[in-house]
Design a protein around this nucleic acid. Structure first.
Lengths: 119, 119
DNA sequence: GTAACTGTACTAACACAGCTAATACACTTA
DNA sequence: TAAGTGTATTAGCTGTGTTAGTACAGTTAC
């Protein structure tokens, strides 16, 4: 379920975009699942259908979903480029933290701590 | 030296903000160092002084620099809140990557790889 | 074939943020 | 006094985000 926060600085279509990306990454939405229709989600979130469509168009362009006129929009999965970008962000963040003097052991320890559910 | 990229989606004042934060984190700018004056940097970057001032005001509010009328702006260092926020971002990113099935060992290995200069 | 649902496209209009421009004032230093 | 600092204010332009309204084409079930 997508949740909008008007205090969030990000535009609405971006929040929708990020929300679905997170759900697909987490496996809440899986390959083949049907996305809510543009009009249905617009009504539910009390916003304009055009804003939903903009998010969907972007999701399709990036390879997260596939839209078929008359049928609906369907989840494709996590595009290859996404994992690559996240790992790149991880490296950059790691480099910054190390340059600030935070020991590599502490970062490694945090990975174990956060990954208890996935160990 | 701050570098602006007009293809970057971030507004100019944000790029300046981030640029100085990175320089202070990396130790390029150290506590007590003098920041370039509002007008000087504006001329150098060919933008309006107000835009620089906006970035400086924010930097001062967040505790990165201290400004004194008539004298200039001076580096304070990395605020405590910053390291905390970066570690929080690290945890969130780590959780996402683990949820996508990337093994903790691979992330740990990347830390070592990126931290060779700081080991 | 018709109705009801899908996605898609387009135009117009409004609000707000980012940025510029111009000006002014107060403080510090030589 | 002059030249350099930071700071404040107002006005205006521009682009982006969003809404509103309308329209068209494809799919599905009756």
């Amino acid at each position: 379920m997508i949740h909008l926060d008007h205090r969030d600085g990000r535009p609405i279509y971006q929040q929708i975009l990020d929300g679905f990306r997170e759900q697909i990454r987490a496996g809440v939405l899986m390959e083949g699942d049907r996305m809510p229709s543009v009009r249905e989600l617009a009504t539910q979130l009390a916003i304009n259908p055009n804003t939903i469509q903009r998010a969907y168009r972007e999701l399709e362009f990036q390879g997260w979903i596939a839209s078929v006129a008359g049928k609906g929009s369907f989840v494709c999965g996590v595009p290859q480029s996404d994992a690559q970008e996240l790992l790149q962000a991880f490296d950059k963040l790691t480099t910054t933290l190390l340059s600030m003097g935070i020991p590599a052991r502490e970062l490694a320890a945090r990975i174990e701590k956060g990954g208890e559910d996935h160990a």
